[in-house]
């Protein structure tokens, strides 16, 4: 099957995932207890993506190297500054410096 057809199929499926509950829930009352659980979606999804990207390099476990300490620095910067810009800058800066000096 051509790449373009696969793209169109993936696009249709992805749109259905995105619109699913939004379309279904329109005009219905969503109970407070459900809202409380749904408010946890970002804090449940993002750490899983972060951990997966950090610990795995493709199918392999990433060897201990510059990524781990650079990530620790970025977490501290994110917690203290709450700034996206400083988190990205400190993390990328740290990983480049650490890579240059890593034994």
């Amino acid at each position: 099957m051509s790449f373009t057809t696969e793209v169109l199929l993936a696009a249709a499926g992805t749109y259905l995932l995105r619109v699913s509950v939004i379309a279904f829930a329109a005009g219905r009352e969503i109970p407070e207890s459900t809202r409380r659980i749904l408010a946890l979606v970002p804090v449940a999804v993002l750490p899983a993506i972060i951990a997966d990207a950090l610990v795995f390099d493709g199918a392999q476990v990433r060897d201990f190297g510059p990524w781990y300490p650079a990530f620790a620095i970025a977490v501290v910067v994110a917690a203290t500054t709450r700034s996206v810009g400083w988190t990205l800058a400190s993390g990328m800066g740290a990983v480049w410096i650490l890579t240059a000096v890593w034994p």
């Binding site: 990524w67 990530f71 970025a74 990983v95």
Partner: peptide, 20 residues
């Protein structure tokens, strides 16, 4: 050498840490 892949965990860290 640019290690652009590292931006992904960083970006999500910046987003999630203030909510924890």
């Amino acid at each position: 050498g640019l290690q652009l892949g590292f931006i992904i965990p960083l970006m999500f860290t910046a987003l999630v840490v203030p909510s924890l």
